[in-house]
Design a protein around this nucleic acid. Sequence first.
DNA 1: TTTATTTTGGAATGATCGTTTCAGAATGTA
DNA 2: TACATTCTGAAACGATCATTCCAAAATAAA
Lengths: 193, 193
Amino acid sequence: MARDKDFIPEEKIAKALDVFWQKGYNATSMQDLVDAMQINRSSLYNSFGDKHNLFLECLRTYGYLAAQDFESVLKLKDLSPLEMLEKIIDVYVEGTVYDCKCCMGIKSSFELAGDDEEVRRIIKQASDRTIGLFTDLLRRAKEQGEIAEDKNPAVLAHIIFNGFCGWKQSYIQFKDASLIEEMATYTKKHLRN
Amino acid sequence: MARDKDFIPEEKIAKALDVFWQKGYNATSMQDLVDAMQINRSSLYNSFGDKHNLFLECLRTYGYLAAQDFESVLKLKDLSPLEMLEKIIDVYVEGTVYDCKCCMGIKSSFELAGDDEEVRRIIKQASDRTIGLFTDLLRRAKEQGEIAEDKNPAVLAHIIFNGFCGWKQSYIQFKDASLIEEMATYTKKHLRN
DNA sequence: TTTATTTTGGAATGATCGTTTCAGAATGTA
DNA sequence: TACATTCTGAAACGATCATTCCAAAATAAA
């Protein structure tokens, strides 16, 4: 009974996501968002609620995309479970070194997850999904004898996932790509023995 | 020729550090600092410059204290190099689980170090000092045959140090102390073989 | 075409931001 | 005691913050 929006919400969320991703929550102003999304202030509030709500929406989108990114490796045929996991690690290293934008989940976790329960919940959900994927691959690797019998897939999955966090931080600080690669190589080597 | 300050600067820096540590840079207002430091606005600006400068001072203090904290383990006698490193890991795990306040270096790194060169420099300096300590311990452990000949002390030191980052993040998200302990155990086990 | 409903643009809100100003109190030195 | 200098307290600064409001433009359905 009334006119439609002049924009596609998903596209605007993607624009906002870019800004939040780069600057973080607190350092991003509504003016930044209005500029980046190329949308009127009223439309922004009308469609997405306030800043906090918009951020949550962006974080959900990010979590969804990031998890999908990890899972895309599963589609590669002719790879054993362990090889898939190694491929995932390689892809992540590439992303860490190539794109200076740090993982938004990690960044938001340190900035907000301590105080903001909803933020924590969203990040945890995305983490759970990815750690679950890793655990599954490791369990299958164990069944096929690719990794030792005494390894605990769940703990190992957490360690790999958490290693990612450190690699990002290391790269921010040292800007040393080969160091990240060496750490990844070390991690992969210790999966096998 | 004129009156002295009514306060001890180091004490006020410590108060400010607490606030920045907990809330992060952007989420901390000058009003928060005035309240916490129990100091007049003018005195604050007069003694410490602006917000950014005060933050840098706090970060330097933090880095100094954190590095000292790691080094305090060196004073323990009757410990081999590898045992010292294991002790350091244990102490860090305890700190991670006991004190919900995340490492300020890591937090600031993700919030600011990407854009703020001075912040990056300060954090890097503290990291270098601690990673240097770890490297040294690992080198001595290698000399004494505590760790395998094919290990690279420098890379291993980075891996341990970076693992810390992930543990913090994991604890923020999962609040699972035993998970952190298991990850630490795994790390220590893989130092030896 | 009319009507009901929504979007849109832009101005305006009060709150809070980091910072400055300034008069007066305080105090070390001469 | 007198002077020079610094610190202190409180108010005030302009800028920016997130958010709201309202009238006008737009348009889907009746």
